[in-house]
Design a protein around this nucleic acid. Structure first.
Lengths: 188, 188
DNA sequence: ACCTGAACACCGTTCAAGT
DNA sequence: ACCTGAACACCGTTCAAGT
């Protein structure tokens, strides 16, 4: 439990420790003070490496999204890619305790060059035939659904029904598949 | 600003005041102490009428959902109803500051009789030809998307792009229409 | 029955001061 | 450059005591 304060902090160790605390204590338990204690350090030390808690949460969210993008296997068309991406997202959200709730409330760090960032995240879909604008729109819709599903999963009074009827994963797929199938094909 | 403590608290006045504080100070500003001050009362007084803050947030979420259900106009088929419901939800979320974020993290009060509750919320769709299980599944998907969209709207680095390209409402409709169009028709 | 006063165990963040 | 100690202005919640 005691970290002997080790080499010295940096953003990497901070981030890794933050995920450990998240796993152990959940999103409400992830306080700057607990994080500091987990690192064997005083709370204000964290502020040398990070501006505030929001920035830390943003970095965590960025990593969760990045893991999802990295996990999407090769696809033969854009619909398949979106479907796989939707599944990878859900997987990545649920691979950390409160992952979706974290992403829903954290603001990933604003990228320095938004244009190149947009190109990077839309790249796969563009290679499969979508123009960038359409790629971003469809991707935004899938992300929204994935995000909302995980939030909704835990909190609706429908909860009892959905899992007894089919299981959450199957229910998730229904909405995802419907959305992906329903996206209009580009018109050229 | 001063409430002369008026008649005396009850759940109704509490809820109304909570929405006022939400509008003024946002979700992070909605503390039990601020709510109490807004009512001209000490913080512990609230705990006579409500078990804890989670219960209060749950009641607020319930009201936001209820407003959406009430706002859905008559529809001629279940796809149209789901589309109108999706729009009403987004409307209801954005009619209160941080409405979606509140609903994403609040747990609406568990209903005493889940079966009759399910029947009530699925009723419209069943009248339009869906069985209850399908109605609940499709509804859950639409709610998830609406919830996730509002959360995503404010926080992605895609943010800049989405609104300059089309406007958020149009982008929202694209995913919603795709999902509703893509739901499979019942097979009889 | 309904509310206050005082307290407990926490928060995020700042800032002087240490090394 | 990097961290500590001490403090500020908050939290949610409990509980005895008042009326």
């Amino acid at each position: 439990m005691r970290r002997p304060t080790a080499p010295g902090l940096d953003r990497q160790r901070l981030l890794a420790a933050a995920f450990e605390v998240l796993e152990k204590d959940g999103l409400e338990g992830l306080s700057m003070r607990r994080l500091a204690a987990h690192l064997g350090v005083q709370a204000p030390a964290i502020y040398w490496h990070v501006n505030d808690k929001a920035e830390l949460l943003g970095m965590m969210a960025r990593d969760i999204y990045a893991a999802a993008y990295a996990a999407v296997p090769a696809a033969r068309d854009w619909r398949e890619w979106l479907s796989l991406f939707g599944q990878a997202l859900r997987q990545s959200f649920s691979s950390h305790r409160d992952g979706a709730r974290l992403c829903a409330q954290a603001q990933p760090p604003a990228t320095a060059d938004p244009a190149s960032h947009a190109h990077r995240i839309a790249g796969e879909l563009m290679a499969l035939g979508l123009d960038q604008q359409t790629a971003l729109m469809f991707q935004a819709a899938v992300i929204s659904y994935a995000l909302g599903w995980s939030a909704f999963e835990a909190n609706g009074p429908m909860h009892q029904f959905l899992d007894t009827l089919m299981g959450f994963d199957d229910n998730y797929r229904i909405g995802l598949d419907a959305m992906v199938a329903g996206f209009p094909s580009p018109s050229w």
